[in-house]
C-alpha cells in the first residue's frame, strides 16, 4: 500500500457541556489509504460528524495527532487549516450549500477564488468540472433552476475544482430521492475509479454497500472496520432500475 492519506493517532475530542464533559471521540486510531472509498456509519451521536470535522480540518482535536497527506494538521492555526481545506479537501453536504444568487459556474469557481487562481483560469476550470459531472449545459443556471440531483452535482463539481486529495461527503444522498441518490453514488464511484479518495458519512446501509470499506462507530469508538473487495456498482443498479421502469 502507498503512504496513507489520513492517519489518526489516539485522536480524541471532548466537548464541555454545562458542567460536564462529553467525550465525542475517545482515543481513536484509524488509517485511510489513498484511493480508498470509505463509508462511516453509526447511530446518531456516535461521533461521525466529530470525526469528519477533524478529518476535514474544520476543527482541532483535544488530544492526539492527525496526519493528513503526511502533514500533522492537529495543531495548525485556523488560517493554515483554511489553506489545507482549500488545497486538499472537497466538501459535499447533505443540503448542497450552493449560493442561490450565483450561477452554477460561479458556485463552482468559489474555491478557486480563495485559492487565488487568476480570474481568467477559473471559468475554464469551472466549465470543465461541470462537464465532468454531466452539467455542461447548465453553467448559467442558478441553483433554484436545477433539480436536487443537479444541485448536488454542482456541489460535487465545486468540491472537485481544486483537484483535492480527499472528497468528504456528509449524508450526500440524504436530501435526494432513491434513484438520484444512486446516480450520485455512481458519480462517486467513477471519481474513485479515477483515483480520488472518498470518505462519506451515512446512516443508510444501502449507500454503504457502494463503499470498499465500512467503518462503524458507537460512542466515539470504532466498533468495526470491514473491507468489501467487490462493492455494489451503482451503475449496475441504475441499469436494473431503468429496466424495471421499462417493464
Amino acid at each position: 500500500m502507498t503512504a496513507p492519506l489520513i492517519q489518526t493517532e489516539s485522536l480524541s475530542k471532548d466537548y464541555s457541556v454545562g458542567g460536564g464533559v462529553v467525550h465525542a471521540l475517545t482515543p481513536l486510531d484509524l488509517t485511510i489509504g489513498r484511493g480508498e472509498f470509505t463509508a462511516v456509519m453509526g447511530p446518531s451521536g456516535s461521533g461521525k460528524s466529530t470525526f469528519m470535522n477533524l478529518v476535514g480540518c474544520l476543527d482541532s482535536p483535544t488530544a492526539g495527532r492527525l496526519l493528513f497527506d503526511g502533514e500533522d494538521v492537529s495543531r495548525l492555526s485556523t488560517d493554515a487549516l483554511a489553506d489545507v481545506r482549500n488545497r486538499k479537501i472537497g466538501f459535499v453536504f447533505q443540503s448542497f450549500n450552493l449560493l442561490a444568487r450565483l450561477t452554477a459556474e460561479e458556485n463552482v469557481e468559489l474555491p478557486l477564488m480563495y485559492g487565488r487562481v487568476p480570474r481568467g483560469e477559473r471559468r475554464a476550470k469551472a466549465v470543465k468540472m461541470l462537464g465532468l459531472v454531466g452539467l455542461a449545459e447548465r453553467g448559467h443556471h442558478r441553483p433554484t433552476q436545477l433539480s436536487g440531483g443537479q444541485q448536488q452535482r454542482v456541489a460535487i463539481a465545486r468540491a472537485l475544482v481544486n483537484d483535492p486529495l480527499l472528497l468528504l461527503a456528509d449524508e450526500p444522498t440524504g436530501a435526494l430521492d432513491t434513484r438520484t441518490g444512486v446516480e450520485i453514488m455512481a458519480l462517486f464511484q467513477r471519481l474513485n475509479d479515477e483515483g480520488i479518495t472518498i470518505l462519506i458519512v451515512t446512516h443508510d446501509p444501502e449507500v454503504a454497500e457502494y463503499a470498499g470499506r465500512v467503518v462503524r462507530m458507537r460512542d466515539g469508538h470504532v466498533i468495526s472496520d470491514e473491507r468489501n473487495a467487490s462493492p455494489v456498482r451503482a451503475a449496475d443498479v441504475l441499469g436494473r432500475m431503468t429496466a424495471q421502469a421499462a417493464e
Binding site: R85, N86, R87, Y114
Partner: peptide, 16 residues
Amino acid sequence: TREIGLRMAIGARGRD
C-alpha cells in the same frame, strides 16, 4: 451564516 460556513469550509480565511 450558512454561506459564511460554506465559504470557510472551501478555504476562506477569516480575513477573506
